[in-house]
């Protein structure tokens, strides 16, 4: 169904081939990832159901980045500080740090939020909960939210050009969205402590 050629799909860790600098490099940002770039030939892609994608852009340095997350509903026994918002914060911080390392400045960042649809009624308003977390993060961090296309009941395809900050958002059939289940992270890798 996609118009994208698999051959053009580039994995984020692969850099642009030097002999073809003009070619569009498509990077798919899947759930649990954060990517940043200043390369004008890069386009970041993702498809969102209940998940939220944050697109950040520094208009002066012309550096952009995107993350893609879905927070799990905390277990009944968990306190309000359970790891789910911790996980969301981690992906937000990962995104900001990747951008800062490329030369972006946090106070210049502008944010756009997408996704958080409530597609499956059985899952409750999990999309809205993710949307609320993302809005709250930008507000707390003093990052200006210049646009949001959140909630509703439709899945979305996002195309983001990090070097120009341009975003294209289209609604797609819900079946196009990946299964909306929070990632199960390896618990052994969570918050590992190493004392020197």
């Amino acid at each position: 169904m996609s118009s994208y050629s698999p051959i053009q799909l580039a994995i984020a860790d692969q850099s642009s081939p030097n002999d073809q600098p003009q070619r569009l490099i498509r990077i798919t940002v899947v759930q649990g990832q954060a990517r940043a770039s200043a390369d004008p030939s890069v386009e970041m892609n993702t498809i969102l159901g209940s998940c939220v994608a944050t697109c950040l852009f520094d208009p002066v340095a012309r550096i952009g980045g995107m993350n893609h997350f879905l927070l799990a509903e905390p277990p009944k026994s968990a306190a309000a500080d359970s790891f789910d918002s911790n996980y969301g914060l981690y992906l937000m911080e990962l995104l900001v740090n990747e951008m800062l390392q490329l030369g972006a400045v946090k106070s210049r960042l502008k944010g756009r939020l997408y996704g958080g649809a409530n597609i499956n009624p059985d899952l409750g308003a999990i999309g809205s909960a993710n949307a609320a977390f993302a809005r709250d993060f930008l507000s707390r961090e003093g990052i200006e939210k210049v646009f949001e296309d959140l909630e509703g009941a439709r899945a979305r395809r996002i195309q983001f050009r990090p070097a120009s900050g341009l975003v294209r958002c289209r609604e797609v059939a819900p079946v196009a969205a990946p299964t909306d289940k929070p990632l199960v992270r390896p618990q052994s890798a969570l918050g590992n402590v190493e004392l020197f």
Partner: peptide, 18 residues
């Protein structure tokens, strides 16, 4: 001169133990 290294996202109980 750091005493230890903890990777986010942190686990509150592991952090407490450390």
């Amino acid at each position: 001169g750091a005493t230890g290294w903890i990777v986010k996202p942190f686990d509150a109980d592991k952090l407490t133990t450390a």
